[in-house]
Simulated scan of single mutants.
Amino acid sequence: MSRKERVLKKRYAIFCEGDTEYNYINKMRKNQGVELVLKPINMHGGGYSSFLKQIKKEAQTNYLAKFIIVDADRIKTIPAEQENFLKLLEYCKLQNDKGNTPHFLIADNPDFEYVACLHDIEYKGQDTKSFIVNAWKFKDIAAFKSNEDVYEFLNSGSKSFRNLLDAIRKQDKLVSNKYEIKKKTFDIIIRQTDYEQDALNKRNSNIEDFFDVIDW
């Protein structure tokens, strides 16, 4: 009985900005005994500071961890967003240093569409929008982003999140979390979060932290 109860208590909060991430994780969470509480954030006009505001508002602690999943493209393309991103990073580090609920900052560089393409073994680094339209036959990028069955689509046929994980484990990361999990008590401790600005010029993601921690 106690084993079953422990599984039921695995609650994680996921803050994400886009429809694609939301739809992906929404379907994921229906697949097994991990409780993923989705917190979609509308960033239009607000940028990373919207994330920070929302996370501060949602300060309840009955989660094993919180995942903050952001697209990194804004850091390079929108003035002042680098500074806002660093404030978000510092807030997450502060929570981790204080021993509060672990805050995993996940940066998809440039965006979640890149992460999606890496599910496909046929993807060889070409332009993501062209690949989604030409190889996957979506009418346009908007049709892909609004597809509620994106999780099933990206994990069908030869496409799989395992392909994604194989591809990104070798990358230089924009953000990297050094953490440990005590399996018996399921305590998660983030020792360090690093930001490597040079990695802005390379496509990368540390979303494996999310898959690894929830033990997908």
Results as ranks from 00 to 15, higher is better:
N31W: 08
C92Q: 03
A142N: 11
N163K: 07
D187S: 10
P102G: 06
C117I: 01
G46M: 03
H119Q: 03
Y48F: 15
N62Q: 02
N147C: 11
F161L: 00
N206Q: 07
F161W: 08
S49D: 14
T193G: 07
C16Y: 04
D194A: 13
R169T: 12
P79L: 09
E90I: 07
E148K: 14
F15D: 04
N62P: 00
I75W: 03
N134W: 00
D97A: 13
D127N: 15
K57N: 09
V37F: 09
K129M: 04
I25G: 02
S50L: 00
A135L: 00
L105Q: 03
Q60D: 14
N62L: 00
M1D: 02
L64Q: 10
D166E: 14
R11C: 07
D71S: 05
Y179K: 07
Q95V: 05
I69E: 04
M28I: 11
F210G: 01
I78T: 15
P79F: 05
R6T: 12
D140K: 04
L38P: 05
E58I: 04
K56G: 05
I75Y: 02
E17D: 10
H119V: 03
L118G: 01
K98I: 10
I41L: 12
E148A: 12
A167Q: 11
L88S: 04
D198H: 12
N62H: 06
Y195L: 07
A80T: 14
Q197L: 11
I55W: 02
S205C: 09
V175Q: 02
K93A: 08
K30N: 13
L52P: 02
E81G: 07
G47V: 07
N26G: 00
K87M: 11
F144E: 01
P110L: 02
A59K: 11
Y63Q: 05
Q192Y: 10
F67Q: 02
F153H: 07
L94I: 07
F144Q: 02
L174T: 02
I75A: 03
K10Q: 15
L89P: 01
I55E: 03
G157P: 06
N109G: 05
G45K: 04
I41M: 08
Q82M: 13
I106M: 08
I68D: 01
V37D: 10
K56I: 14
Y151G: 00
A199V: 09
V7G: 00
N201C: 08
I181T: 11
I214R: 06
D212T: 14
R191D: 10
K93E: 15
Q54G: 05
E81L: 08
R162L: 13
N177S: 13
N206E: 04
A167C: 09
F131Y: 15
R6W: 07
I14N: 04
I132R: 01
D97K: 15
Y63V: 06
G45I: 05
E196R: 13
F67P: 02
H103C: 15
K76D: 12
Y114A: 02
M43F: 06
